[in-house]
Design a protein around this nucleic acid. Structure first.
Length: 196
DNA sequence: AGGGTGATTAGG
DNA sequence: CTAATCACCCTC
């Protein structure tokens, strides 16, 4: 099975690309993860996106070509990874929320302090930790760089569930979260904290 | 339910 | 410069 990974597909609309990433594999430094949960962010059209108010030093890679890794630091301690999608300039991206470790589980266990294997890459920050993805990898090319994305055949729509994104204050109503129905590695839904 | 933690950002 | 915000995780 020598299917060449056509990352050119990532140049499409983020809402089409996001579900296509389910089942794809992400590999880095000895650990491979099969993606089970993602979220779409539509750049300047999307109040929930970091890129909503235009380019900044942090978000500049999202305005670049599709197939690039956008990594950011969350709450001062967590790294989260996104795949940049869409035509250059649209600043859309897909947040990788969870996955199943399919290779290098022993290494992933060393990087994580959890007892259950299903939790190794459960949640966007945990996924990055299991894979050993740091901020320094942001901006790298997912086809040729240290972090490799490999697409798989599209999964049938009836295996995919959709719902609201996790933890957003802006645009919490858009059902732009996609996950594989019944997967134990999918993170629990938590509504955004309410402003007092 | 609450706290840790620091980059990032808008605003003065 | 300041202060608010934050696409989270863990423990209580």
């Amino acid at each position: 099975m020598s299917v060449s990974p056509d990352l050119g597909l990532l140049a499409g609309d983020v809402l089409d690309v996001a579900p296509r990433l389910l089942g794809a594999t992400l590999r880095h430094d000895g650990v491979t993860v099969r993606l089970t949960e993602v979220e779409a962010y539509a750049g300047s059209d999307d109040p929930g996106s970091h890129a909503y108010r235009g380019p900044t030093p942090r978000t500049r890679v999202m305005f670049g070509p599709a197939g690039t890794l956008y990594a950011y630091l969350s709450y001062g301690m967590h790294v989260c990874a996104n795949v940049v999608t869409g035509p250059e300039g649209t600043a859309s991206a897909v947040l990788l929320r969870a996955g199943e470790v399919v290779e290098g589980a022993h290494l992933a266990r060393e990087r994580r302090s959890t007892t259950r294997d299903r939790d190794l890459a459960r949640g966007p920050a945990n996924l990055c930790r299991a894979l050993g993805i740091g901020l320094d990898l942001g901006g790298s090319d997912l086809a040729t760089g240290p972090v490799r994305l490999e697409l798989t055949a599209p999964l049938s729509r009836d295996r995919i569930s959709t719902g609201p994104r996790v933890g957003l204050r802006g645009a919490p109503d858009r059902p732009w979260r996609f996950w594989l129905t019944g997967e134990p590695s999918v993170s629990a839904y938590r509504p955004a904290a309410r402003r007092p």
